[in-house]
């Protein structure tokens, strides 16, 4: 998904977090948003993003909306109620992970 394999396990959390901050987003918009927020440091590849979005949709965490934009159809994703709850859990898990890693690699800061 990115320039570093370390980000790989966090793709779902990144998607959920972005959708939690925006009402609805489409695939390309998500890739560009991540690129902009991380100043190009993290690039989500298309080949990883769409399977992840479809999986989250199948799990009932995302809902879809389709609209005609310009001369094509655009699929928007938004969080379901379950998705919003799951975002909180995922973010807590990630914070815990960062804390643990911090304790391991830099015990002085932990």
């Amino acid at each position: 998904m990115s320039n570093s394999k370390l980000y790989k396990g966090s793709l779902t959390t990144i998607i959920l977090k972005l959708l939690n901050e925006h009402d609805k987003m489409y695939g390309y918009e998500i890739t560009q948003k991540v690129k902009a927020l991380t100043k190009g440091e993290l690039k989500i590849t298309e080949g990883a993003l769409y399977p992840a979005l479809h999986k989250l949709e199948a799990e009932g965490l995302l809902d879809v909306e389709v609209a005609k934009v310009d001369n094509r159809l655009r699929k928007y994703y938004k969080l379901t109620e379950t998705g919003t709850k799951e975002t909180v859990n995922k973010l807590e898990e990630l914070a815990e992970y960062i804390k643990t890693m911090q304790a391991l690699v830099n015990p002085k800061l932990a």
């Binding site: 298309e46 080949g47 769409y50 399977p51 199948a58």
Partner: peptide
């Protein structure tokens, strides 16, 4: 090219799983 070596295949596979589940 940005879709990677597998192109659209991973997305198709994931979608097929989701649709069969549905």
């Amino acid at each position: 090219k940005k879709f990677g070596v597998c192109g659209f295949m991973d997305a198709i596979e994931q979608r097929a799983k989701a649709m069969n589940k549905r």
